[in-house]
Structures are given as structure tokens and as C-alpha cells.
Design a protein around this nucleic acid. Structure first.
Lengths: 337, 337
DNA sequence: TTGTAGGCGTTATCAT
DNA sequence: ATGATAACGCCTACAA
């Protein structure tokens, strides 16, 4: 691998001059500039980025923390983030926590060891106080979860309102006994949604059922299991808020196979407006988030903070959500896709 | 940010000794070791990875090239790759080409500029001769596409055989007029599949239809469009090989909405055994690839090559595929999920 | 067992 | 306009 030194020698000039050419700086006459360019070509020279990083104290790289990339909500978010980052000339390192708080901390070390200039967290599995420790090492922007105590910029939708809207919709459709599902009550998102659910339930004085399993609903499989347990233990439930299109799909799949009619016997609401929610039959009523816009905004904020340096105070960016009403909650009729 | 020098001074020792402690090397007595550890703690020292990279000529980072992460086939593959890489202490940079050969080349530069130690390509949009140029800069392993001329290790399933199996299955189910769909005939995968399709069609002497649109089938939306055009132009087609569960889902969705019975009027085969293929109603017959195993093997091979250094000759790892027969091609009956 | 010193490849500062 | 030189922070012969 040729170095800048080799190029300089080959061109009969100094490293400084070569460096100037590499970085498009002035104060190099055309003739020498050509000589340098030629030498670089001859030797197949390419600047070593480790050396550049050391010298410039920048990596042009950001890390994105997320639970699992196979969750379509996150893969859509990452797709948009990577695209935007790439436009700005930044690399993206992907960090799957698999819901482990330890892995989350391990990945945060990337910030301290200066492997990345900044970080995006789409999920949070530690106390904020623990994460705050890393802020001096570089900017962190949150996207998706709304952590009350967080003293850094943050992007999210109003989960409480979204759950309230969805629950109200179930009630308006005539549901009288509801269930609230979530992926675990330790997340800020599930907590907010639960508040919204409870608000609607109390406001309309509708009854609801609780069960330990209801807070372990994470994928298609758990949706299927929960349907079975509901069938056996409390078949009078007639409306479910799932917080996930995959869970909703699992429930619907199992219901169809067991002769339970959706939405007549059981209405189901999903979350995230994933591809599957449109394709299922019946199609799934769901809450849509503007993932792409949120992702792009997030990257822009982060890169801005990186390039401005210095600490930044918290700013909240709250994006709008939309309830997509489909046939899993409403009587069948032509609804355009 | 404290440096190794600061720690050394604080502990009243030399940089060397501190370095030895950092890297768990022998020849440091316990007392001084403690002093160093204490000093690191006091100062909040953390080694700077840019400096380490420059010194060691290693980045402990690999890049994964793929078209789009939102394609579930790729997101499952990346999930497994990132997990495996992380176990080995490697970071993963994600590079979406969005099917652009230029972006592919841009990302390959990461290898030349030593931002990564190695690279995995899950799709290839340039002539192999162009990609070969990068091989001297670091190992590249292919995962998914089988490029004939490639002189590097490569992992794939037998796409031709898979398409042959799927097509034969359609024929066995009684289909008499087939169509072959793909995402574009410029990819090695589509070409292999077409060979398999043709082999079955000729062997059983079944007729088939061609159309320009048939090679633009990439997602749910295009599946829907293709169904519509088939309805209008050649409704006698009774069996379709799609090469994609999403395309298959789009076709089925549209067929159901238009009163065309699946599989009686039209049988459809997908590819990749994605979540959606089990959940659709009818469920989609599809070809399963052992994505996770392929991904893990790929990362292992790459890291091995990185750590052994030197050029490696091509080895082929061919993984087995399975045809999952479901209701989009077979008369309804109880098929366990 | 410990320390000294040189170099990894760049870029910025300061002369000339 | 060009060049010499000193960092950036770390690791490792080699010397002691």
C-alpha cells in the first residue's frame, strides 16, 4: 500500500503538496498538481482513513442502536437513516441489542472509544442516568422512544394519543370487553400506550381484562398463543389492542383457523402499518407512523450536532400518527389500499 | 480526553507499562498494575480506537453490501450476520446499493481506504472484473449470488434446482400454462432460476407465456399490477413462478379481490419463505433457504480470511433449499404451519 | 520487570 | 507557492 510519502517521492515533491492536492486546497500550481495526480494514479494511491481519523478526530460514522433489524418497523427506519447518512457522507454501524441492556451498554462504548461520532437510539433498555454518562463522548439522539428524563433531542409520536385513538375506535365499533397487549411493560412506549388505552376505557366505561401473557406479545407466534389462551380462559373478549401488526396477524390467523369471525366476534388493532397489515384477510386496522420522515429528521439533527460540536439542549420533535381503519375492526366493505 | 500519556504520568509510570495493562500483557507486577488501573479509572481513560487502527492496521469492522434492508430476506440475513460478527468482536457497516452499480463501487472503496477489513456482498451489480480490482485491498465473500467468474469464496443455494422443483410442482398440480416472473434478467439469480424453469417446462412439454413486465416483478405492488395485466391479456395462465413471496402476495391479494380462485384458477409459487407466506390466506407455497446458516457461515469465512491474511482461493458452499408446499398451489387441506 | 524511542499515515503550523 | 516538522494516540522492538 503506497503512502502519501511514496507519492511525494514519486512526484518529486513534498508530502505537504500532495496532501494539498488530495484535499483540494489552493496554493498548488497547475503543473505540480498534475504531477501529483499522475503519481497517485501510477501508484494506485488511496488515503488511509485510519490515519485521517486519528489526525482529524472524526470518523464520519454513526451507530444506530435497535433491538432487531428483522422487525419491519425498524428495518424501514434503518433503511431511511442509512440512505440519509450516506447522502451526508457518513457510514452507519448497525447495533442490535436483542433487548439486552448489557449489549446496549457495550455498543455505547463505541461512542467513548471514538469509533463513531454520534449515536441514534431507537430503543432504550437502561436507566437514562446510565446512558447520560456517554453524552460527553458525543451526541446521542433518540428516535421512537420518549424518555421523560432524557436531556438530549428526541423524536417520537404521541403513543398515548395513538393508543387512545385506536381504543376509542374499538369502542365505537361496539366492543364491550377489551384487552391491552404489549411487548413488555418495561418500555416507555408500552407505558404510554397503556395510559392511552386506560383513558379511553375509563372515559367510555368499558370493561377490560388483564393477564400476564398479555405483556409478552412480541411476534406472530405469541399472537397465536394469546388467541388460544383467550379462547380458553375468556372468550367474551371482543376487542384487542395489540401494539404490533405481527401480533395482530398471529391472532387473526389463529382466529380464522378456529372459526372465530373477525371483526364480528373479535376486533383487532395492530400498530405500524406494516405491509402485512394490508395483505392479511381481513386486513388489519393499524396506527401509521411517518417512519421515513422521523428517520431522516433524526439523522439530520444528529449530523448537525456532530458538526457543530459542543453540548446541545433537548428538543422534542413530535410527529403525527394516523389510524388506518381496515376490516379487522369494521364490517367488510370496499376500502382502497 | 485523557491519553495513555496522561495515565502514565498520573500513575508515575511509562506509557509502555500502561499499554501492557491495557492489553493484558505479562511483565507488570501487581502493584503497578493496580496503580495503572486506578489511574485509568480516575481519569476516565479509554483507548482511542483511531490510534489503535492506525497502529495495528486493522479496523475490526466489516461491510455488508445489500440492495435494500427492508427486503425481509436481507434483513434476516443481516440480523444473523451482525450477531455473528459481534460475537467475534467485529462491527458491521451496512451499505444499501438500492440496485445501483455506482453505489456498489462507492461502497467498495471502503475496502481500499481501509475503513473495513473485509466485505460481504449479497448482491452484485457490476461486472466481476470491476469488483476483482478490490480484492487486493481485503477479502470479499459472496453470499446469495453465484457469480461464475468470481475468484473468491461464495455461498449460495442452487437457484436453478430450486426453480426447477417449484415449476415441476406447479406442473404436477395440473397447471398447463405457466409464467415466469423475476426482478430483472440482469441478475445471476434470475438467470439461474429461468434455466430451472425452462428445464421443467421443456421436460414436461408445458406451454408458457412471456411478457416484458414479467421481469420487473419486485414487490407487492408489482405483483398486483402483473395480476391485472394477466387478467386482461392472457387469463388462461394458470400457474406462476414469482421468485418472491411479496410478488406472490400481491398477486394473491389482487386475485382474491377479483374473484379469481387460488389455487383452482391460478396457482402461485413464492420464494424465501417469509413470514407473510404463512400468514396469507391462502398461504403461499415457497422455496425456503437456510438464511441464518448461510449468513453465519459467510461471516465465519470472512473473518477467518481477514485474520489469516493473504489471498484465498475460491471455495463454494452450496446450501440446501426446501420447497414448502402450501395452499396457493395445492387444494385446501390441513397443513401444519 | 520497566522504560526509551520510533513509527503507523495524515494534516496543520510555520517558515521560506 | 512550497516544504520541513510537529503532532494525533497507540504499540513494540530494544535497551536497561
Amino acid at each position: 500500500m503506497p503512502t502519501i510519502e511514496d507519492v511525494a517521492r514519486h512526484a518529486g515533491l513534498s508530502r505537504t503538496t500532495v496532501s494539498r492536492v488530495i484535499n483540494d486546497q489552493p496554493y498548488v500550481c497547475d503543473e505540480k498538481r498534475q504531477r501529483v495526480v499522475g503519481a497517485m494514479r501510477d501508484l494506485g494511491y488511496v488515503p488511509n482513513s485510519s490515519a485521517r481519523r486519528l489526525r482529524s478526530q472524526k470518523t464520519e460514522t454513526i451507530a444506530i442502536l435497535l433491538p432487531r433489524i428483522t422487525n419491519p418497523f425498524f428495518s424501514h427506519m434503518i433503511e431511511a437513516m442509512e440512505k440519509k447518512a450516506s447522502e451526508w457522507g457518513y457510514q452507519v454501524i448497525i447495533c442490535q441489542t436483542h433487548y439486552s441492556s448489557q449489549k446496549e451498554l457495550d455498543y455505547l462504548e463505541l461512542l467513548r472509544t471514538k469509533q463513531v461520532d454520534g449515536m441514534i437510539m431507537t430503543s432504550v433498555h437502561n436507566e437514562w442516568s446510565a446512558i447520560e454518562e456517554y453524552l460527553p463522548s458525543g451526541p446521542i439522539v433518540l428516535c421512537n422512544e420518549n424518555i421523560e428524563e432524557a436531556n438530549t433531542s428526541i423524536i417520537y409520536i404521541d403513543q398515548q394519543e395513538a393508543a387512545y385513538d385506536a381504543t376509542t375506535h374499538l369502542i365505537e365499533q361496539g366492543c364491550e370487553k377489551l384487552a391491552f397487549l404489549s411487548g413488555g411493560m418495561d418500555s416507555s412506549i408500552a407505558l404510554s400506550r397503556r395510559r392511552g388505552f386506560m383513558k379511553a376505557v375509563q372515559q367510555y366505561n368499558v370493561s377490560f381484562v388483564e393477564h400476564d401473557d398479555f405483556n409478552q406479545a412480541v411476534d406472530v407466534e405469541s399472537g397465536r398463543e394469546i388467541f388460544q389462551s383467550i379462547q380458553q380462559e375468556d372468550a367474551t373478549i371482543d376487542g384487542i389492542f395489540t401494539g404490533s401488526d405481527e401480533v395482530a396477524a398471529g391472532i387473526i390467523y389463529e382466529a380464522m383457523n378456529n372459526g372465530v369471525s373477525i371483526p364480528d366476534d373479535l376486533a383487532v388493532v395492530g400498530f405500524d402499518n406494516q405491509t402485512i397489515s394490508k395483505l392479511m384477510n381481513p386486513s388489519i386496522t393499524t396506527v401509521e407512523q411517518p417512519v421515513v420522515e422521523m428517520a431522516e429528521k433524526c439523522v439530520e439533527i444528529l449530523i448537525q450536532q456532530i458538526e457543530q460540536r459542543g453540548r446541545h439542549k433537548r428538543e422534542d420533535y413530535i410527529f403525527p400518527h394516523t389510524l388506518k381503519k381496515r376490516t379487522s375492526t369494521t364490517k367488510p366493505m370496499a376500502i382502497p389500499m
